[in-house]
Design a binder for these strands. Structure first.
Length: 282
DNA sequence: GCCTTATGTTCAC
DNA sequence: TGAACCTAAGGCT
């Protein structure tokens, strides 16, 4: 589920590779030149900003990743320790792996990314300059985001998914956060009060870290409670999320029983409860 | 097995 | 507004 939480979760999973000598390969043969840029370098930190990942290296450019709809990244420990003490470059390949990194302990397989490219520092800055603030990083509701909301003719629901306004929110978090707060998705941007925007921002700041930790979009009180009640540990099982509105067209709203509605809005499906999501108008 | 849909973004018309 | 990218899962037959 590649909304922002997925990418922050990925950055965390890449942290153990930092400082390692890595080999980079293109198992599918579709990114041979790209792989050669990173082959033999030392991995640095991976940083997430919204749905974008920036993975730096000591003697190479930064790898810029965006998973889009279909992209996946697997980070797996090797089953066996390499006998020669070198990163194994002859491991089996499952499916279409665009780019693979290996160190002596683990492999990182990148499949079907929308963006997978090498950037220098200036180019990274240019990409990041187009992204709004990221709720996973926390902090108070940013004035910059509210300003762009006020300048817009679009609705709150559309603006929430504009990555230049807020970075990292996708269609699931949008539907679930608006539902949790009983907010009407169609409030015009210029009518969004600072109080309403603060509610939305604070809710994202509170909810998204659970997504980063669990790797799943947890937004209902039951799911959150179930996750919190489990003991932390390396084998903590990944929960199955239950949504209140997302993908629940025609099924009863868990709060008021009215059927969940769905419609296309700027090319994306919006799910909401027309009866109880009426708040937020000034 | 086949068809539809999906967490996203960019580009062409 | 629709197509393209190109993968996986679920519903259906």
């Amino acid at each position: 589920m590649a909304e922002g939480h997925t990418i922050h979760n990925l950055a965390r999973r890449l942290a153990p590779v930092q400082g390692s000598y890595v080999r980079a390969l293109s198992p599918a043969g579709t990114a041979v030149d790209l792989a050669s840029l990173f082959d033999g370098s030392i991995a640095g930190p991976a940083v997430a900003h919204g749905k974008h990942l920036f993975w730096s290296f000591e003697t190479a450019p930064t790898l810029h990743l965006h998973l889009g709809m279909f992209g996946r990244v697997q980070v797996r420990l090797h089953r066996r320790k390499p006998s020669d003490g070198q990163p194994p470059t002859d491991l089996p390949v499952a499916g279409n792996v665009r780019l693979r990194f290996v160190d002596t302990l683990r492999k990182v397989d990148i499949k079907a990314p929308t963006i997978c490219e090498a950037l220098d520092a200036d180019e990274v800055a240019m990409v990041r300059a187009k992204l709004g603030p990221d709720p996973v990083l926390g902090g108070p509701a940013p004035k910059r985001a509210l300003d762009s909301i006020h300048r817009s003719r679009r609705t709150l629901a559309e603006l929430l998914m504009d990555q230049s306004v807020i970075a990292g929110v996708g269609n699931v978090y949008r539907a679930e956060v608006l539902h949790r707060l009983r907010l009407d998705p169609f409030i015009p941007g210029r009518e969004v009060t600072p109080e309403v925007f603060a509610l939305v921002w604070d809710e994202l700041v509170q909810l998204m870290p659970y997504g980063v930790d669990s790797g799943r979009i947890l937004t209902t009180d039951d799911d959150l409670e179930r996750w919190r009640s489990q003991l932390d540990g390396p084998r903590k099982p990944r929960p199955t999320p239950h949504y209140a509105a997302y993908l629940r067209t025609g099924r009863p709203c868990p709060r008021c029983g009215h059927p969940i509605a769905a419609r296309d809005l700027s090319g994306r499906r919006l799910y909401w409860c027309p009866r109880c999501q009426t708040e937020g108008h000034s």
